[in-house]
Design a protein around this nucleic acid. Sequence first.
DNA 1: TACTGATGCTACGCTTTTGATAGCGCAACA
DNA 2: TGTTGCGCTATCAAAAGCGTAGCATCAGTA
Lengths: 97, 97
Amino acid sequence: MAVLDLLGRRWALGIIWQLRGDRLTFRALQSACGGVSPTVLNQRLRELRESGVVELSEREGYGLTASGHDLRKALEPLVAWSKRWARGAPASRSLRR
Amino acid sequence: MAVLDLLGRRWALGIIWQLRGDRLTFRALQSACGGVSPTVLNQRLRELRESGVVELSEREGYGLTASGHDLRKALEPLVAWSKRWARGAPASRSLRR
DNA sequence: TACTGATGCTACGCTTTTGATAGCGCAACA
DNA sequence: TGTTGCGCTATCAAAAGCGTAGCATCAGTA
């Protein structure tokens, strides 16, 4: 299941989720993701671009490809679940780092 | 989006996916995930248990909770997407480590 | 009473990944 | 000619992950 390898890296899911609406510049994306280090952001973006999920246009910045939008749609049940989960399990959010 | 933090760690999605059917013992789960080190597996399992997604029964090993099964269902569109993606983008699977 | 095998899990040392910060090269603009 | 914003890289420290070995416990068995 290669997709779990692609998406099971830190920020990968978040990046896709942040790009669900308008296109974002590198720096906008960086701050939207809570200040990821540019090293990792760039690495993730490279992987996602090589996977055909994310694309960069010079004018408008980063955005999802058609395939990426499909992926974002496939993520929606997950987000719906997470909302239910956040409501139902308030003690569970304390993951120490 | 705390769920992306929980699930955006290595093996987290895979563990949930492996538990979709029967319950598995620690070691069975370990080999089902391609030989994850017990250190990481145990840490992920602890996080997932604290989040109420996975549970351990002494008799039958690890399995999903009701919430965990919901999550697994929410993951199905993602798996469907990944199959399409694997078919359509054969050049994309080469993520260097 | 050992002995055997399976369980969940920890300890250790090392590699890889991620993080924080600074800054480069470039282009548009004033 | 400076300034601003862009994508992105360099560097180094910290955190996460990995591989291996092994512990403690319990059930079955001889």
